[in-house]
Design a binder for these strands. Structure first.
Lengths: 183, 183
DNA sequence: GTCTATACATGGATAGAC
DNA sequence: GTCTATCCATGTATAGAC
């Protein structure tokens, strides 16, 4: 089932890339077709409408969100640190789907995108809260994560806030916080 | 100078409203004209192009950003707490301009919007850092603020994370953190 | 399954009347 | 200073050839 729509995946990748790099507006059927190396007609055979492309992104991310949660749970460094560290986009498949989804959600035309994001964030909140045992801290961690995704996607070249050093600093600060709240 | 373009202000308000409520894509000249209660031609007399509308938002927010910084500095509760508290949109003129600007910046078509946001965030960072005296904490506070603006604008009805109670909780957590780092 | 051609609607912007 | 009418480009989607 995972690989059954092998022809569709590259098109979805292209769609996400255009949305991230040039914005939802620029992600026209034409532009996505060019990026994917197919014709407009070819694209529309696989995805009958633009909404189908959005639904495709949602389906993919719903599947990989579970894998991501498993990865966080299994992380030796701990859920919180790993969660924060991976909230700066590194261009992974998951990152790309997630950022594309936030852009689509903010464009206002796709309520399903907003709903999907809400589901994912709830899952993350529960996971973080189960580790830190404090809803206030969990909320803060989620906000930091949102801030990191937002900043790193909007300012890919920024040297403040999303570079490795700043990130380690933020993680250290949060670790201090968790300790302070426990002690 | 503040009120010299009195006819332009309502149009900019309408533009921001449509961008926030229905997305950049929906903010067509037609839609903005209807929202502002003028004709397309009437709108285009004041703003010769869509880019002019964006520039108008940037000009306005650049002016009010200074007022906002003054307000933060003068706040009895302290810069950090007030900054976080006011990062949940309350529908003020500043909030509306700021959120509209983040949407425009993410749409990718307006580099000026991105640049304006970067300037504002730098100003905020300096202000927060001067109070907490710790760049790591300042960075975290900025990320929380970004997260709050993002969440509250994307999920206006969410009862988690952006309601008054959760907000107080987050502020308390950050206050704990500032103390922990100082002591 | 992928392409070309085309229909149709909409968005940005200009010209010119009032 | 605000309106209507209109032009042109672009975006979505369909039909049908290959």
């Amino acid at each position: 089932m995972t690989q059954k729509q092998s022809a569709k995946e590259p098109v979805l990748d292209a769609f996400e890339r255009v949305v991230i790099e040039r914005g939802e507006r620029a992600a026209t059927l034409e532009a996505v077709a060019v990026e994917a190396g197919v014709s407009k007609g070819g694209l529309l055979y696989h995805f009958g409408s633009k909404k189908d492309l959005v639904d495709g992104v949602i389906e993919r991310i719903s599947a990989s969100a579970t894998d991501y949660s498993d990865l966080l749970r299994a992380s030796p460094e701990g859920v919180v640190s790993t969660f924060i560290r991976t909230s700066v986009t590194a261009g992974t498949d998951f990152d790309n789907s997630y950022i594309a989804l936030t852009r689509l959600a903010q464009s206002g035309i796709y309520p399903e995108a907003r709903a999907a994001l809400a589901r994912i964030e709830t899952e993350w909140f529960d996971l973080v809260e189960s580790e830190v045992g404090d809803p206030g801290v969990a909320r803060l961690v989620l906000l930091v994560s949102d801030g990191l995704y937002y900043s790193s996607a909007l300012f890919p070249d920024a040297t403040t806030r999303t570079d490795a050093g700043s990130l380690d600093e933020v993680i250290a600060v949060v670790a201090d916080l968790v300790r302070a709240r426990r002690g």
